[in-house]
Nucleic acid binder design. Sequence first.
DNA 1: CTGAAAGCGCTTACAG
DNA 2: CTGAAAGCGCTTACAG
Lengths: 355, 355
Amino acid sequence: MTDSNRTRPRRSTAPTMLHVAEAARVSVATVSAVINGTAIVSPELTARIEAAIRDIGYKRNAIARSLKMGKTRTIGLTVADITNPFFTDVVAVLQEVLHRAGYAVMLCSNDEDMEMQDEQIQLLLDRMVDGLIIAPAGDDANLKRILGGTKVPIVLIDRICDGVEADAVILDNQRAVFDATTYMLQLGHRRIGYVSGSLDTSTGRDRLEGYHRALEASGVPFDETLVRFGNFREADAYNASMQLLTQPDRPSAIFSANNLMVIGVMKAIRDIGLSCPEDVSVVCFDDFPWADVFRPQLTAVAQPVRAIGEQTAQLILDRLAGRIEDEPRRLVLQGRLMIRNSCRPHASLLQGATA
Amino acid sequence: MTDSNRTRPRRSTAPTMLHVAEAARVSVATVSAVINGTAIVSPELTARIEAAIRDIGYKRNAIARSLKMGKTRTIGLTVADITNPFFTDVVAVLQEVLHRAGYAVMLCSNDEDMEMQDEQIQLLLDRMVDGLIIAPAGDDANLKRILGGTKVPIVLIDRICDGVEADAVILDNQRAVFDATTYMLQLGHRRIGYVSGSLDTSTGRDRLEGYHRALEASGVPFDETLVRFGNFREADAYNASMQLLTQPDRPSAIFSANNLMVIGVMKAIRDIGLSCPEDVSVVCFDDFPWADVFRPQLTAVAQPVRAIGEQTAQLILDRLAGRIEDEPRRLVLQGRLMIRNSCRPHASLLQGATA
DNA sequence: CTGAAAGCGCTTACAG
DNA sequence: CTGAAAGCGCTTACAG
């Protein structure tokens, strides 16, 4: 059928633009023009080319295009733990709006391991992602070095790293924990256990600071035996809570610095033979979709997940489009304390009430 | 410093292999050889080249490499809903082992929307992913067409599509639901509501079939007013359960065909003023990490998440390496019923016991 | 409105 | 053991 003289063996590789050009008897430049709408092509040629594309089943090779254009239309995304519903929810939103804008997203999760994180970011950068969204596992020097050398727009979410030149969208963690702690104090709790995240993260530090400040504001002395480190993981939080609850004058309430850890806290309470909220009140950071149908209904700090995702996506899209070019921006959103039934007034208050 | 005669203005673009070659005074072929260890290069040259790479801060451009090599070392992954903890857990495992094998993963989530799914798969294919892992949103003809044209290895997880030529790793859904339903029947329940997933998915069909068979095996007649469709989403399941629970002779137990839906089921039970397990027993498909610390402690079918992830990753890695080349394989894993406290014996049995 | 040609940054026979 | 050159599949000035 084809009258081309140098018979090209029908190879199993995908058809290329050249094949289309041959079939439509035009140049590849013209094919490219119609595919990209990048120049006006006569109706006849357009039709011939479109037919050829259809016949041959041609698909543009995005890799070749990326090489030539210097952009890949993909965004790299690393989160500390994809298993954490908070990150998952944010990722879902990001994915949705970025995809709508024509970007693919490459996702990495590193289980809070900084070395793996750095490796992953390297891998993303090697693949020439156009932008990078990072919920950093921690605050290490390597990250700063790796990111320092790159030109791609970066936005940090949830956690920030001081040395890194990047936009950020985060929560007002200190304020949120201040409010949550104050709530517990108002219920009469004086010994409030605190299961902390890693202090290598800004969230770990800011949340603990919120706890601190709330105690201070209420004139309750800080007792360092009441803070234990759970590093944002369930198992660690379980151990931390076991220690907290088996020490002499045990806390009457516990604050868990994230969602994964509160499971460990609850398991410890159960395993020791106590119950929540009867024996110990609990508040945690991050809300759950099921929090108001299972008991105890957890009192929790809810983050505006959709807003975080949307604003992050918008920010990076604006950078990519060159719509903003000034120095790094920092967006700080507010959390909301969802008061449910995992806290009880402290015994002292109850006695006061009945007396 | 550089004695090159055609002075190359220090552009802001990343350094290329040619820059390294010039700096080390060798050809790019030699640079490539030492970077890839693809040929033996004398120690002196190697040292010079490595020094140049370090000085210049050269990083290999993976896009150019992909174009030349015809492979991208990235795997596309689409799941119906990244917000679903089951998928999240599998994704985490996949990501981990694939990354360890040197692959990046491009993730898409489509909120159970088939059109968006097809678009995403197209996007992944355009970007020349080396392989595709899909938890299909549904069973549409378009998917078959899109996938039909491609040569990349595909593995379906969780759900299968009959027309698609691909490996698959799935659960024995029918068996799992058979067991779960049988458990409820043994507790004396006769009117068991069933909140189903979409019948456009194999899991939707197979799970419902398991329910069917269990009733049949126990000689309990099938009542179609007891099955409602929740399409794997919380809100739909809520409505489905409201209908189920407000109909005349309401069910004494409900089976939820996945994890997201059970939240809707529980909300409906609560909003109607009933409680679980006192008024209605509940069992669901998919386990939760917190299932045994919050009440009611849900009785659930647990999937072997890690095994699913690992076997899927292994399968696609084996295909990519050409270690297996025969016809599509199908791996079927078994679920496990985790009996906890969300079911009570039916009143008729209790009376029998006390009488 | 259309085409010939260069080049994006790599890899890889092929000579030497 | 090393280098000159072609080519992966695109896009884009530049002529006509």
